[in-house]
Nucleic acid binder design. Sequence first.
DNA 1: GCGATGTATGGAACCGGTCCCAGAGACGTA
DNA 2: TACGTCTCTGGGACCGGTTCCATACATCGC
Lengths: 338, 338
Amino acid sequence: MKSLADVARLAGVSKATASRALSGTGYVSERTRLLVTQAALDLGYVASTNAASLVTGRTRNIGVVSPYINRWFFAEVIDGVEEALLEDGYDLTLYRLRGDADQRARVFDYFLVRKRVDAVIAVGMDFASDDVGPLFSLRKPVVGVGSQLPGATTVGIDDIAASRLITRHLIDLGHRRILHLGGPIDGTATAVHSRRREGFRLEMASAGLSEGADVAPCEMTTAEAYTAVLEFLERAETLPTAIAAASDEVAVGAILAARTRGLTVPEDLSVIAIDDHPLSALFDLTTVAQAPSKQGRAAARLVLGILAGATPTAPGLIAAPLEITYRGSTAAPSSTSR
Amino acid sequence: MKSLADVARLAGVSKATASRALSGTGYVSERTRLLVTQAALDLGYVASTNAASLVTGRTRNIGVVSPYINRWFFAEVIDGVEEALLEDGYDLTLYRLRGDADQRARVFDYFLVRKRVDAVIAVGMDFASDDVGPLFSLRKPVVGVGSQLPGATTVGIDDIAASRLITRHLIDLGHRRILHLGGPIDGTATAVHSRRREGFRLEMASAGLSEGADVAPCEMTTAEAYTAVLEFLERAETLPTAIAAASDEVAVGAILAARTRGLTVPEDLSVIAIDDHPLSALFDLTTVAQAPSKQGRAAARLVLGILAGATPTAPGLIAAPLEITYRGSTAAPSSTSR
DNA sequence: GCGATGTATGGAACCGGTCCCAGAGACGTA
DNA sequence: TACGTCTCTGGGACCGGTTCCATACATCGC
């Protein structure tokens, strides 16, 4: 491998001058600049970012932490982040960080031990406030996406508000017995699904409908939702007239389960959700759009801005506006089921 | 940030000894080893991989290139790769590499220019043989997953064989007019969807059914497949009795489109596909399972093995065995439609 | 007692860049 | 003429580790 010294020698200049010529910093005459770039080209010279970051302390590399990479929201966010980083010539190092037991340990091992990221973007990480300590002890910019990161700027939507919004819509349509679907029951209160469930509870309560509020917990996947809804319908005494789902993926499971049970949507059962997953259009699902890849881009921009010297925004949620995309899965409850 | 020199000073030894003590190489007495590790602990010392790799030339970092990260197969593979790498303490740097125009340029820019990966795993990259040049010029291990990489070891399934298998199953059931669904028409011949289409053609031809073979191209997404099938059914003179889909995601689009048109599966239309996507169980879809996350793991293992000194396996496909998972979406054509 | 071998340690070169600082011309100005 | 300023270049320290080599001592066989 050719090094900068080789280039400098061929160009007949010093290492220092060669470095300046290639990086474009400091004073270099046009003539020598051409000389050096030509020499670099001739030798097929490629710079070592390692060596550079050793002295500059900057790696042009961003760490992305996410509990999943094979679920829609997370994958979309990462996609957006990657795109934005690429535009600025940054690399993305991916860490899947799931579970709780080894969570801290891994944060320590893989971020503290190796100091090769300039900043961290945490995607949908459900960190408790005492868990983020190690993350911040890096003294590097940290930005969250999706679930809110205590003490850090987070881009996303207000999950409680979004859930209240869809619940409200069902209530406004005339529904009184509503099932909230999705999210394991043992999640922390700050988890996205917990907050969406909380929003549902709050809205039902404020409408005086706590009696009609029911909850079916399940993992946030279509398959789990399908069986959860099937089981719920099995043992329910009075059926709900509507489902407020924690996500589109879960809602699709509900719709499929309803079909299996011979219920039609929305006549027998209205379904509404949050996300605007690409499948939701196919299932004619009313939902609240959130564009995760845009959130990813925004988070990346934020981080790059801070690295470029911008003053960091105050910790807290940078919330995207909420708007319902009305489709055919919601309607007033039919008179018979009322 | 504390450096090795600080640790050495505190422990009262030289940098060299401290390095040996912490890395566990060479001769170090038990006593000084404890001394050094304790000093490192006290100071909260974290080693700089950058500095280390500068001299060793190894980064403990693997580059993963993939055209998508938000599609099931790719996300699953990356997930598997990440998991396997993590176990060995390797990092994963992700590069999304799509399109063709800037494809080469990016490979050059982001791999050659920065020499900070030890090896490359190319996930579902549809590289033409003259496109892989830059990739191999890195002189680093390269392993492919999914679509076959000319000149490199690739783990995956034999797409042509898989497609022949599902087509054969339909033929064996008695179907004579079969539609192949999925994959843009302009893809290169080596692309996964092209090869699956090719497998379909071959099997139909070898059964003397070229007449009954029809093709509906579309992007490999559920939504695109949905509209493609709808349009196809619109203008088809005689309807096919079965669909061989290039992927489960596409097959789900077909099933939904069939439902929209009032066709029932499998009575009016059999559907079979390849992948065993989690949704396929919900849609009762007969399919050929491939476990992408396992493929990812396997590829990572392969790469780690080579880096550990194992002799690289010969270029070519390491194919997983093919087996149909029989579910309810396939049946003999009904007598009326026959 | 002596050389060979094994264990333990330190000094210093080295990886490949960046950047501070000194110095040399060129040019403008008092 | 003398001096300040600007442009351009090179020398060399430095980032933070790893590793080669030399040295020192202990042990062992003969």
